[in-house]
Simulated scan of single mutants.
Amino acid sequence: MRVVPVKNIRPGVELAKPVYDEHGRVLVQTNMQLTEVMIKRLKNMNITYAVIREENTDDILIHSPIPDEQRIEAIQQIKHTFQNVKSDYLMNSNHLLEKAAVKLEVLVKELTTELSKNEEVIHYLSDLLIVDDYLFAHSLNVSMYTLALAQELHVNSSDLEQLGLGAVLHDIGKTMIPDEIINKPGKLEKDEWKIVQAHTEYGFEILRHAHNIPLLVAHCAYQHHERMDGSGYPRGIQQNEIHPFAKIIGVADVFDAVTSNRVYRDAMLPHEGLDILYSGAGTQFDKHLVETFKKTVALYPNGLTVKLSDGRVGVVARQNRQLFDRPVVRILQENDRNVNPYDLDMKDVLDVTIVSTDNLHKQD
């Protein structure tokens, strides 16, 4: 299977994975040859990538962090919780949030178990799920990245549950921000940006008044935009003033934000998202956390088309554990000509690097 940008797909190719909506309904079925109309529909739904079937890559597996059914159910649960929180807040109550918190704790345990069973790093390019609000999918993604990073850091199980809950609820304050500002396609005005920044304070206030939610979870919402050099918000605190959990969530939050498709820009690839984190390592972000996070995600996910420094073009076939920038690549072209496919293990050819990705291969 190959992961291809939807904008490069041509009619006639077969979809290897279905596209779901947030309720688990199949919008575009697998094993069907895509038509012009279906490709246009994928574009209109803001799908960045599609997984297609082709003979030379049919044995390449595209991994998901958790099963599709579990992911859909989790997003629905998060959506329901956030909507109830807004109703609670307007009625000066915490009843619905406190009731939802019990279920969210179970969700965190389920995610932790699922992620610990999976020895693969997290691949997320192939996430063909349509949700009507980025906030809910983002909250789930951040919780998965956070838990994966925490497991790599060997955080104990008790702290892991609080951290996971903090990650799921880190952006709950955005329910108080007007939709027209949250979903604005262009650059925010200065006063609009101030309103968005207030979501950290809203989140803290909402969570700290819920009796069955630890105060530490509220501080995760409050501090996840603080930065080591004091350049963050809402208080501009720095270094050890920031709770370690907020630092972890901050790394996961930025990575998912830049690697997700938004109304105002296209998604970055994972290696580009990691470059953003590395550019702030030691200043905005804890350097050890960034280096550890690199071990939890596939920089070049399976199925991605890549070009090598020696001119060869291929598709990432599988990962090398602890060497995620040097995967095994299924070579399909040399010197701009198709060749009989063969696998090149990049850990064995250190003088060859990946120089570009993503937009290389247009379907004929």
Rank of each mutant, 00 (worst) to 15 (best):
Q197G: 02
L34M: 13
D68V: 11
V51L: 07
A74C: 08
Q239C: 03
G203V: 11
G236F: 03
S87P: 00
Q29L: 06
A137C: 00
V26C: 02
V329Y: 07
L308K: 14
K187M: 08
L135W: 02
L308F: 03
G303F: 02
Y222G: 00
E119M: 11
V142H: 05
F285P: 04
K362I: 01
L207M: 06
G303Q: 05
Y300T: 09
E98I: 06
N46K: 15
M32H: 09
I182M: 04
T113H: 15
V155Y: 00
H170S: 10
L169W: 07
P5Q: 11
K117C: 07
A50D: 13
I248A: 04
N261D: 06
N44M: 12
L42C: 10
V142K: 06
D21H: 05
G236Q: 11
E55N: 11
D275L: 10
N212L: 03
I248F: 03
R41Q: 15
Q284K: 15
M228I: 12
A281F: 01
D132W: 04
V328Y: 01
R337S: 13
F324A: 00
D345Y: 08
L34E: 10
Q333E: 15
T30F: 00
M91W: 05
E120K: 15
T292V: 05
I47A: 09
D191V: 10
K7V: 13
P234N: 09
A150S: 10
G232H: 09
L344D: 01
L125H: 10
I122K: 11
P234W: 11
L188N: 09
K99Y: 10
R2W: 12
T57V: 10
P67D: 09
K294E: 14
A137W: 04
K190R: 15
A267G: 05
Y89E: 14
E55Y: 11
A167N: 08
K103Q: 14
L169A: 06
A246E: 10
H288F: 03
A100F: 01
